[in-house]
């Protein structure tokens, strides 16, 4: 018992205020919790009460189109590389204009964790997250979305951007025809 008192001495001897602080620290939380008990809960009662997510909320993924209505996706595989759960797969291909596009593009939403890394990785702003979150199903195969299901007729968050107007390979405009380019070089020019 003497030892016990020593402990209290050691602990509170130097600063008697500590004991007060400890007691207060034990009692005060009871007030805090009691006070919270009478506040309105923050819970949304989901099916009855729906919340409006922010525009940048990360839910269902879509593929957007450029201002001219072309598919923005160039099937560069960066989203599938970024995807931590490997839920995106695709096959790139080339159309007759030399435009690279996805011959097929598939997102397995039953695997997707909506982390948004794909949208972050996308260099052409094609893949974007939408706030549409009421999205579930019982059949895993029905949660596998193909390109046709993913494409929307809109540019999404940046309507003006067209990758091919900056890429400099002559798909949206003729070669050297973008505003930040000189026309194609002529090797046979007489000018030095």
């Amino acid at each position: 018992m003497a030892e016990g008192i020593d402990v209290y001495k050691r602990r509170y001897g130097q600063n008697p205020k500590s004991l007060w602080r400890d007691l207060k620290g034990t009692v005060e939380p009871f007030y805090v919790t009691l006070r919270n008990m009478f506040k309105k809960p923050v819970t949304y009662q989901y099916p009855e009460e729906k919340r409006t997510p922010y525009p940048r909320y990360r839910a269902r993924i879509v593929l957007t189109r450029d201002p001219e209505g072309g598919e923005r996706c160039v099937a560069c595989y960066l989203c599938s590389a970024a995807c931590p759960v490997d839920c995106i797969s695709m096959q790139s291909s080339e159309d007759e204009n030399g435009r690279r596009y996805a011959a097929w593009f598939r997102i397995n939403f039953s695997r997707c964790i909506y982390c948004g890394l794909c949208a972050e990785a996308c260099p052409t702003l094609a893949i974007q997250m939408t706030p549409f979150y009421e999205f579930s199903g019982r059949d895993p195969l029905k949660m596998v979305y193909e390109k046709e299901d993913l494409l929307i007729a809109d540019g999404g968050k940046d309507n003006e951007y067209n990758f091919y107007k900056h890429a400099g390979i002559g798909v949206a405009n003729p070669r050297g025809g973008n505003e930040d380019e000189y026309g194609p070089v002529d090797v046979r020019s007489n000018l030095p």
């Binding site: 160039v74 560069c76 595989y77 960066l78 590389a81 690279r100 260099p123 052409t124 990758f163 900056h166 890429a167 400099g168 390979i169």
Partner: peptide, 12 residues
């Protein structure tokens, strides 16, 4: 150098 790594086969 153009801005076309996404459509370049060498990318990666």
């Amino acid at each position: 150098h153009p801005h076309d790594c996404p459509v370049c086969d060498e990318g990666g």
